[in-house]
Design a protein around this nucleic acid. Sequence first.
RNA 1: CGAGUUGACCGGGCGGCCGCGACAUAGCAGGUGACUGUGUAUGUCGAGGAAAGUCCGGGCUCCAUACGGCAGGGUGGUGGGUAACGCCCACCCGGGGAAACCCGCGGGACAGUGCCACAGAGAACAGACCGCUGCCGGUGUUUACACCGGUGGUAAGGGUGAAACGGUGGUGUAAGAGACCACCAGCGCGUUGGGUGACCUUCGCGGCUUGGUAAACCCCACCUGGAGCAAGGUCAAGAGGUGCCGUCUUCGGAUUGCACUGCGCAGACGUUCGAGGACUGCCCGUCCGAGUCUGCGGGUAGACCGCAUGAGGCCAUCGGCAACGGUGGUCCUAGAGGGAUGGUCGCCGCCGAUCUUCGGAUCGGCACAGAACCCGGCUUAUAGGUCGGCUCGCCUG
Length: 145
Amino acid sequence: MRADPFFLHGAVRAVQSFQPDAHVLLRRATRMRRSRDFRETVSTGNRAGRPRLVVHVLEGGESSDLSPNVGFIVSSAVGGSVVRHRVTRQLRHIMWQQVESLPEGMRVVVRALPAAATATSVELETDVVKALKRLGVTQGVTANG
RNA sequence: CGAGUUGACCGGGCGGCCGCGACAUAGCAGGUGACUGUGUAUGUCGAGGAAAGUCCGGGCUCCAUACGGCAGGGUGGUGGGUAACGCCCACCCGGGGAAACCCGCGGGACAGUGCCACAGAGAACAGACCGCUGCCGGUGUUUACACCGGUGGUAAGGGUGAAACGGUGGUGUAAGAGACCACCAGCGCGUUGGGUGACCUUCGCGGCUUGGUAAACCCCACCUGGAGCAAGGUCAAGAGGUGCCGUCUUCGGAUUGCACUGCGCAGACGUUCGAGGACUGCCCGUCCGAGUCUGCGGGUAGACCGCAUGAGGCCAUCGGCAACGGUGGUCCUAGAGGGAUGGUCGCCGCCGAUCUUCGGAUCGGCACAGAACCCGGCUUAUAGGUCGGCUCGCCUG
């Protein structure tokens, strides 16, 4: 019924052994931190809006390395501290699944709108996937298919 | 049982699956090795009672060892607890309540200064509007009495106010008044007894009486150095600058290495005739001292330690009214770094609505809120729930 985890892990290990330095690009390095990156991506990049969030995308600039950069903007208009943290965590988990299909050097900023406070993770994932697909970045495949 | 009052506690539970962070073991990769790294596996752990506000108090770190005076700031019944506190406990005093109990920003208003709206005649060495009353004059033909005017007296009565300069009764008087007397209240002085103390209490004497506001200035007593984990420490890297050695050279320079420094430019002041800094401000005093300050432009901010064993939790026992303390046993329970704790499914719990064959079913909801060096408090937010103490009332025995 369910997929064999040992088989999957074995396959991943086989792949990673051939590309030993590719995994460094994920996780922490993928997080956008500098305010300059946010400013450039939001002001000069392409944009796709949904009722609950806006996705900004900027193709790899001159100073970018190979890893895609992902940042989040959740302002106090969304809600209190607890609500903002929950929305950020939901978006972070969603983007972790999308990062592998992003082009190299791509910079993505997801800005949450106030309607995101009451949305479920499925709704947020649908919004992110549709926005990325409309921007022509990914093929639009959710994690669960 | 009901009404009230008060204290303590919980703050959804159990189990899958996909993810995230930390640690341990194993694996894998690198290394002679110590060890380092990790898209790996397994296991364990992973937000709160307020994590919040950042309002107090400490630990810890650096500044000089934190010392004197003034200023500034804080606290304010008494005794105790504590590392300390503005916190806690017990008691005292005042106020509220039938009671349990609750509330108090609870030193000083004869050291001084200021302020007290509106109303009212008068509001701080009070005040004469109405009223009461003596004397003089006039009118009602006279006495008596009444009225009018003038000139005095009077704070007992009316009215205003949050507050009107003790209360009741008498003596006294033209009318009155602590003017005088008795009792009461309050104040001051002495005194008896109790208490560590705040204070309570007994008796006597005195002058007859003195407003509120100190969260206005102020006075008194006591406390108080500053900055904060982005503290602070170690390591790595480091554009550039200066000096030296070597090499090349078109003699302008370029470049390798080593050492020192730790960005560049401009201006001001200064090196024993002492700039500037440290002790928050000023003074005194002491110490450091060759750079410091200002403006403009730029660069970097990586890793590790600090960092979770602590004034720690729980249980028992002893001391204490209690806060709390002593002794013994036992437990180890988050550690991120633009910052891990998210999602989903099942069952149960609670609440609401609808349907009901009264068995239940369906749908929706479950508060306030997210650790960031760590503790002790306070304050504020909080759906719902559990357990106890005490007071009053009713019923039963």
